[in-house]
């Protein structure tokens, strides 16, 4: 791939992810709007949300000022050179920041200095996965700081919750996390869960669930059942959009699993705000195809 051309494609991918709400999320938000009581603050919040989505799409303005961490998962033809791709991602990030598709969001935790270009130690940190196909697939998500702060990692068993090392323990952990978050992660959220793995990979599998479409079906029957049960019961909590109270506390629950160590049982929970910004780009030859 020509690095200059790739850079242009990547800027467009960042623009799309930051400014254009995926259709499945928009549909779920509209359902939420219709579900809430007339004249309630909850309905008012949904109205503002729907108007924001239209405005951002029309004017190419970021949906949220917190354009988040850019989480990249890139599938590449086995044997490809990756260093030039990494370099194109960095350059595209700097340019997208200059174009105001991204807020300067990278801060040195020791000095407090913000370089203003979204680069820094560990930023960006793309995940690369080889595959047998000849095409490239770039998956991008903007994960904001507010919802990142209400994410959680439970270590089972948990005496406080009466949660054991089984799916009932997972159920209790997720409900508790959604309760603890209240409206602070920009409810209604999409609750993405990783069962197992270690402290690091547990959160990776949780965040990978954010890329799933809201209306997909989990191929694992046990997890599919748990997703439905959690979706129903999280919405019984009555926290509602923004924590105003209401019927829509979560838009979806998505669960993945990794094998764990005999001694550990982590339930990693990535809370994604309603503004579930993600986009995909497939590159075949010189042509790029975008979707979200």
């Amino acid at each position: 791939m020509d690095p200059k051309q790739l850079q242009i494609h990547l800027i467009e991918l960042i623009r799309k992810s930051s400014t254009d709400m995926p259709p499945d999320i928009e549909k779920a938000l509209m359902t939420g709007y219709h579900r809430e009581a007339k004249g309630s603050s909850a309905k008012g919040a949904f109205k503002a949300i729907m108007e924001t989505i239209k405005l951002s799409r029309k004017k190419s303005i970021p949906l949220c000022q917190d354009t988040g961490s850019l989480v990249w998962h890139i599938y590449y033809p086995d044997g490809s050179e990756l260093l030039p791709v990494e370099s194109s991602i960095k350059q595209a990030t700097v340019l997208a920041t200059r174009l105001n598709y991204l807020r300067p969001n990278s801060v040195d935790p020791v000095t407090g200095i913000n370089p203003g270009n979204n680069l820094g130690n560990g930023v960006p940190s793309p995940h690369f996965h080889p595959w047998k196909k000849k095409s490239w697939e770039f998956n991008l998500m903007n994960k904001g700081g507010g919802c990142e702060n209400v994410g959680a990692q439970y270590k089972l068993p948990d005496t406080r919750l009466g949660a054991g090392r089984d799916l009932d323990g997972v159920y209790k952990s997720v409900l508790d996390a959604v309760f603890q978050a209240q409206g602070r992660g920009c409810a209604p959220g999409i609750i993405c869960v990783g069962i197992g793995g270690d402290r690091d990979t547990g959160m990776v599998i949780a965040k990978k669930q954010i890329f799933r479409k809201l209306d997909d079906a989990n191929p694992d029957q046990l997890l599919a059942t748990l997703e439905k049960k959690l979706y129903r019961d999280c919405n019984k909590l009555g926290i509602g959009p923004m924590g105003y109270g209401g019927k829509t506390t979560v838009l979806g629950v998505k669960i993945g699993k990794y094998h764990r160590l005999p001694a550990t049982y982590f339930v990693s929970i990535a809370y994604m705000c309603w503004s579930d910004r993600r986009a995909k780009m497939i590159i075949r030859g010189q042509k790029a195809h975008y979707s979200n």
Binding site: A48, I49, T52, L63, C64, Q65, C186, W274
Partner: peptide
């Protein structure tokens, strides 16, 4: 005063 989180483009108007 609670503003609607995530509605940044609209609030900026």
């Amino acid at each position: 005063l609670h503003a609607t989180g995530g509605c940044a483009a609209k609030i900026a108007e």
